[in-house]
Write a protein that binds this DNA or RNA. Structure first.
Lengths: 125, 125, 125, 125
DNA sequence: GTGGTCTAGACCACG
DNA sequence: GTGGTCTAGACCACC
């Protein structure tokens, strides 16, 4: 399970963690019902504070991507169908990135091609 | 030129401004060589601090989307071809949002369909 | 005797146990002088740790709801009249939940109606 | 605005804070759109850590009782109609406390009378 | 000045 | 051993 943290990035460490854990799940390297490392051990591995990992885990729980079982650990949730809130989140994020790509002069096929390449690493046909 | 600021959002106001101005350019409501409103007038319109608008403009300049001409104003740049840095930015952002959509259980066609709908509002065929 | 444990709940398992056993007594499914299952058998039934059940039983004893007879078992106490401490506990708990219901915009009749429905499942006229 | 913290209580300080702030809102001492004290000033007033107050505020936001406006402050939300989740929360909490009151030998009228007394301090007829 | 983030280190409740 | 809670103190982004 490779996670790379960029401490000097403008993106908060806990957000980097959230994003990379989501990618690991999307790639299938973390499967539903898999147990995540304990906050302490992951913090030690990455050289960050326990609370930072803890915050990332709680953010993933808020997004309903993992479930935290107190005193026991955190497990990856089953993937079901997106909630309205999740759909809205994705749509909003896509709007922002697609607008930026347009302004950068990328044409639609180019963007779709990049998207397809990325998604080919992710789960499901 | 409709810009809507959500003060209670977790996203900083200046970032909201950046994103919405990019969308306006993507939609063609702001064209290359158009002049943006002055920092003062836009701040007054939106009821936000002048420094906040100023920061947004400088962020857009850093992204090479507008040019700030001191004492004169800010104008929308020509759209050319993306720099490597811009490509990397878009690719990275797409990775994050597409991973999240996968984890939410959205299938690829569904995501692409949303992307196409969004892009149909944006410039270029 | 149906007891349902939610391991991923934020509420400690032993507290869930305490609450559900109290509900069973309130509903009359456990009567005064009935014997509770042994710590070992209940733990096995629920798939939880023996210490967890033990802690729940001792919490119920502290509340004077059951009596633990060493080497013999635990029996449901007679229901008498509330002690001052018990009255204070209930009053404090009611304050908290009724304040929350008010803040959520529920009106008093609505709350009382829910309370009556719940109490209709419980013992005594 | 009187808030009393019991540091030695078994109830976490941040939970005590949450409950007391909810009571203040229910009593109308804090009105919708009122601004809460800053996390730092309230922490100083109560002699607790800033992060503890911060956690309480975020818990209230999760319950949709206040809105946190980053870098600006926290304001009490408008009271509308309860969501399904809020209704379920209240119902579940009522079940627990009413079962306990039954087991303590309190009869229904007695409990309702206490509830009415409490609610007479709270907003709305 | 405000909340956001991060660190370091501690004790406790739980299982 | 695990997460939960709390403290203390620091720097930063935002407004």
């Amino acid at each position: 399970m490779f996670i790379e943290i960029e401490p000097s990035s403008e993106i908060p460490i806990y957000t980097q963690l959230v994003n990379q854990l989501i990618e690991l799940i999307a790639k299938g390297e973390l499967q539903p019902n898999d147990t995540l490392p304990s906050v302490r051990s992951l913090a030690a591995d990455l050289g960050v504070n326990m609370h930072t990992v803890n915050k990332a885990y709680h953010e993933l729980e808020r997004k309903r991507i993992i479930r935290i079982i107190p005193k026991s650990g955190a497990v990856v949730s089953e993937i079901t169908t997106p909630t309205d809130e999740q759909l809205a989140t994705i749509t909003h994020a896509l709007k922002t990135v697609l607008a930026e790509s347009t302004v950068y002069g990328m044409n639609k096929d180019e963007v779709l091609s990049i998207a397809l390449t990325i998604m080919s690493d992710y789960k499901e046909g």
